[in-house]
Design a binder for these strands. Structure first.
Lengths: 216, 216
DNA sequence: GTCTATAGAGTGATAGAC
DNA sequence: GTCTATCACTCTATAGAC
């Protein structure tokens, strides 16, 4: 399957690179300005790509959005989860290390941007069905990882504590905290939200310890 | 100041009504489609008003957005707080009655729309400064009311518990829960979020009771 | 696969008569 | 205060040469 000899059609050059540049530019602009407020022409300018090329890879602006959300699905583990697991061994600490990663991103952008998935979730869920499903998948995968850590925490959480439900609660607090940080352009609301969650975890861990003592 | 005799200029007819219709239409459409995705012409059609009239009351689309957020500031007490306080006397229960009001709104729209303020918060905070400040004011007023209830709860919460911080945490959970409900088009994620918060409150109340016992 | 050129509809906003 | 008409621009998307 060499393409160098008699393949005189569609010479791919670096096809991946063009597609990549479009996804990267679109992701950045959708995050900075929102989906509807970002014109295709802005994506093209940012990517240094011409209209014809974009519509070769993506059949519409909507399709580009779906591509961006697919990219986020791919990036979850290498960009977020693996660094967290490498940095932190303790399963409960991993949850808060993950939340600290988001904090770092917030601070490094002066709290202007917020969560890429969360922003799109609210903007497009009711009007772009395919993209909405990708948002849900992003949330699901995120929660599955966190739920795994909570399962790893074993007896450090009460036996009655539903790990899946708690992982979704962690997402709730993370997104709610980022929303307020973005609105206020200050990190404090995010920190306060995580502190609230930390307090909740402390109480869950205390209950688990008491449980353990009672049972010998 | 009668306007019926020699006032041959700018006969106000029902000026308020036109402005009102525009705000109502804009609020509905911004909620259903988002700010950027809503054209001025759609607002005009929905309100049954012509372009010239709109630009008499609002100097730009942005200005209309600010007007909508001002309207939400006005509506907080009559539409949300007063009904909650009328329905529920217990200060801590009032918090969860308020959260149940949002649940009702979510369910009644099949979880399609979410929180009007939260949606706009993420869409416009980074690009529309004046509107962003109105969003912040909406959040502040909401939290001030909730914080007041938490203060009313007195010794039912631990002495060390910061009521203002807790009110913001309640907002965090409410917004994060609505985001997931909207993304999934199901009420369950919202209910699970509120259940998580309820569990946290239960533990805070338990600690307050233990505190009280210790101190006589 | 990439380019240019452009279609065709829609955008926010304004002017000026009434 | 409301109306019509319209400007100047941007939007997404496509056609067809290379």
């Amino acid at each position: 399957m060499r393409r160098s000899d008699s393949d005189n059609s569609a010479a791919p050059a670096d096809a991946a690179s063009t597609r990549e540049k479009l996804l990267e530019a679109a992701a950045r602009l959708f995050l900075e300005r929102g989906y509807a407020a970002t014109g295709v022409s802005a994506v093209l300018a940012e990517a240094g790509v011409r209209s014809g090329s974009m519509y070769y890879f993506f059949k519409s602006k909507d399709d580009l959005l779906v591509g961006v959300l697919d990219r986020y699905l791919e990036l979850l583990r290498p960009v977020l989860i693996e660094p967290v697991e490498a940095a932190t061994a303790d399963p409960i600490d991993r949850v808060f290390t993950l939340l600290a990663f988001y904090r770092h991103f917030l601070v490094s952008t002066n709290c202007r941007l917020g969560c890429p998935i969360g922003n799109l979730a609210l903007e497009i869920s009711d009007t772009h069905e395919e993209a909405r499903q990708k948002v849900v998948q992003n949330f699901e995968n995120w929660c599955a990882v966190v739920a795994g850590w909570l399962v790893d925490a074993g007896e450090r959480l009460p036996a009655s504590c539903d790990r899946g439900a708690l992982s979704r609660y962690v997402l709730t607090v993370m997104e709610g905290g980022q929303m307020q940080a973005k609105a206020q352009k200050r990190i404090e609301p995010y920190d306060a939200s995580i502190a609230g969650l930390r307090d909740h975890f402390n109480r869950l861990e205390a209950e688990a310890r008491a449980e353990k003592e009672r049972n010998g």
